[in-house]
Design a protein around this nucleic acid. Structure first.
Length: 359
DNA sequence: CACTCGTGGTA
DNA sequence: TTACCAAGAGT
């Protein structure tokens, strides 16, 4: 193994974990989904927050979490809700397969587990939307199991603590082992959250506050003055620009033509205005052949730009007005402008509607 | 295992 | 502006 200069001793791990927990007791973040000291964590809330927090910032999650919990207070309430209501509550948060899997998971917890989340990592892993990280997080935080939850924060903290030179993602198994070796028997849930808080507030990607770090002494990256250079990563490629056309059909009675995207894939199950294919060689000059209805289409000035994880997108927006007796094309529906806020519209579609209708 | 899957914030 | 990043999972 190229990665570790030398192995940590059991004593080092124990002392580091104790130092981290002592720091956590003083500096832990207060978060809506986090139980206060002495409180019993609610597995439903822990699970919901962990799903929302996947690749999503705490700031972005907070308002969604509060609204979602108010609307679906229990796993039973969520399981009984219509899919459309769940997607609507998630709209704008991104990664919509999470919402579909969340709903499926709630139904499974009710149907298979009697409405109680299983406490074992293995059983949690078998539920939709719960992978290695989330299974470990729920087992440790909600049920006090000795388990690790290795997310981006933990990868950063552990790769620095041990100066892991092997790049991610190939270093994942090693980092998982290093973390597991450090988990204390006593407070595994607090330990998991402490690692994440440390990564989020002290051991940050840029300019880590090593002076304030409870693990500064044993940290090998800091000893070499190389903390900022960890974790090492394989260079990634950015996708090519794709172009396409979006068609905002407005009916004289103030309704807008919407449709629902296929259940899987990009923006799966979300609402949209009719759009063309999105390709790097899309010819906007011939966009009208992709229009959902024949009509007096006019192109709005400029374009709508949006960046997905793996490609940037540039949409030409076309608008046209139709008579009040115009029937929707197959798969389409006329939605009153006033009701657009209640639709499961991803942000790229809100941008399109903003340009076409001016808010 | 490489790719797919959103969005908003920051340097 | 570009690039990177944020409590990853499914395929």
């Amino acid at each position: 193994m190229v990665s570790v200069l030398d192995a940590p001793s059991k004593t080092d791990s124990t002392e580091s974990a104790a130092a981290l927990l002592a720091w956590y007791d003083r500096h832990r973040r207060i978060l809506p989904w986090r139980a206060l000291p002495g409180e019993t964590p609610d597995p439903y809330r822990v699970w919901l927050s962990e799903i929302m927090l996947q690749q999503t910032t705490v700031t972005a999650v907070k308002p969604y979490y509060e609204r979602f919990l108010a609307r679906f207070p229990t796993v039973e309430a969520l399981a009984q809700a219509p899919q459309e209501a769940v997607m609507q509550a998630w709209a704008g948060l991104g990664y919509y397969s999470r919402a579909r899997n969340l709903h499926a998971c709630a139904k499974m917890v009710v149907a298979v587990h009697g409405g109680r989340f299983p406490a074992e990592e293995k059983a949690l892993l078998s539920l939709p939307g719960i992978g290695a990280y989330t299974a470990g997080a729920i087992a440790a935080i909600a049920f006090g199991k000795v388990a690790v939850a290795v997310d981006g924060n933990v990868e950063r903290v552990m790769s620095r603590l041990h100066a892991v030179t092997e790049p991610l993602p190939s270093a994942k198994p090693l980092i998982r082992e290093l973390t597991l070796a450090m988990v204390p028997q006593r407070r595994p849930g607090d330990f998991a959250q402490a690692l994440m808080d440390l990564g989020a507030t002290i051991c940050t990607p840029k300019k880590p506050a090593c002076v304030l770090c409870p693990l500064a002494l044993p940290c090998r990256a800091r000893a070499a003055a190389l903390a900022e250079t960890f974790p090492r990563k394989e260079t990634k490629t950015t996708g090519r620009l794709r172009r396409g056309a979006a068609f905002v059909a407005l009916r004289a009675d103030g309704r807008v033509l919407l449709r629902t995207r296929p259940p899987k894939g990009l923006l799966g199950g979300m609402a949209e205005v009719p759009v063309s294919d999105w390709r790097h060689d899309y010819a906007i000059s011939e966009a009208l052949r992709d229009a959902p209805l024949a009509g007096p289409w006019r192109r709005a000035p400029g374009t709508v730009r949006h960046v997905f994880t793996h490609f940037p997108l540039e949409l030409a927006v076309f608008t046209a007005t139709f008579g009040i007796d115009t029937a929707p094309p197959a798969g389409g529906r006329w939605v009153p402008r006033h009701d657009l806020a209640g639709e499961a519209l991803p942000n790229v579609m809100r941008k399109v509607l903003e340009k076409a209708l001016g808010g």
